[in-house]
Simulated assay, not measured.
Amino acid sequence: MIKSITVTNYLGDSIKLVLARPEESGFVVTSVTGLGSGKANINTTEIATTDGDLFNSARLQKRNIVISLKYLWKDSIEDVRQLSYKYFPIKKKLTLLIETDNRSAEIDGYTESNEPDIFSKEEGSDVSIVCPNPFFYSAGEDGINTTIFYGVEPLFEFPFSNESLYECLLEMGEIQNQMEKTVVYSGDAEIGVTITIHAIGEARNITIYNTGTREIMRIDTDKMKAFTGSGIVAGDEITICTVKGKKSITLLRNGKTTNILNCLDKAADWFQLAKGDNVFAYTAEEGSSNLQFKIENRIIYEGV
């Protein structure tokens, strides 16, 4: 069940439309369309000598969300109507955050129309929002899933005692740096990841693997040295984004961000998460223990 819809306009101003308490916002949400899994275009080719068609490709169309609103009388019905112009400005970008009983999902779109029925006894409007990217993305506290390959395992327990006067037997924690980790993905469609590599020392020629798909991504530190003046050194942070439309690889060094896309192997695979377990691993020719590795991803939903 949908509990609320939060609208954030292009200026960053937000209003929360709680379906059970419309008096708080002044808007009664009477219906919302376009929240399902959408419609796909299936491209096929007819074959003269065979029954049926040959499948070529498939793609999702843009999403069109239409929100029907009724205005509640507050100080003035005109104030509520004009408030709708503020949060649903024509041809401007906005973000919808939809909260249900078991998920929070958001989507970006542009207001196509906001036509109020001014002379109606129960004044309201139908707001049409066009979303070029038809997918919903996870939001809220669980919006970003982080898989960390390094960290500290807590070992300190009560009660405790140190049985030696000469040795330190108590362990407060143990630093771990794993070279392989599983990213569990529960989304409805494939999505890219953001890989962050933080160096605490020198390292040379990093290779990242998706062991399930046998995809590989290599960073050539010799090219990096020729381009930036040095290979990977302590304090460097490399960020690789494989999200479609946002693919990039950057180096943060001494507070300066540099595009190092040309340091990536030409045959590199841009990893995409599939539903289920995705096993990633990394190695380096030298200094692999000097690398702190993590993967971040969001979750894609086909519908609310």
Rank of each mutant, 00 (worst) to 15 (best):
F135W: 13
T213S: 15
L96W: 06
D236L: 12
C131R: 02
S84P: 00
G36Y: 07
K70I: 13
L19F: 07
I206M: 06
K275E: 03
I2D: 03
L83Y: 14
T239A: 09
I197C: 07
I240H: 11
L19P: 00
N64L: 15
R253G: 11
T45L: 15
E112Q: 13
Y85R: 14
D222N: 10
F135S: 15
S31E: 12
I2R: 12
I118Q: 05
L11N: 15
E171Y: 11
K3S: 04
K294R: 14
N102V: 07
S164M: 07
G52F: 06
P154I: 07
G231I: 04
T258D: 10
T258Q: 14
S31H: 08
N41F: 01
T146R: 12
N145Q: 14
A203H: 07
I260A: 07
V279C: 10
W270R: 06
D79V: 06
T30P: 11
E171P: 05
E285D: 15
F227E: 13
K16V: 09
L97Y: 06
E202N: 09
F149A: 09
I216C: 06
L69T: 09
D51A: 08
Y301G: 00
Y10S: 14
T49A: 14
E46D: 12
S68V: 14
F55L: 13
C263Y: 08
N102E: 12
R21G: 03
F227N: 08
M172Q: 05
K181N: 02
E141S: 12
T8R: 01
K275M: 04
Y282Q: 05
C241G: 00
T257C: 05
G276N: 01
F27C: 07
E302S: 01
G235L: 08
T95L: 14
I295K: 02
A40W: 05
S161G: 10
K294F: 00
I148G: 13
F271P: 03
N262S: 15
K62S: 15
K74F: 12
I260Q: 01
K62R: 12
N278A: 05
N205Q: 07
T194M: 10
Q178A: 03
L11S: 13
S14H: 05
S31M: 05
K275F: 03
T242W: 01
S289G: 07
F156R: 09
L264V: 15
G245P: 06
S289H: 11
A203R: 06
G109Q: 01
L291D: 00
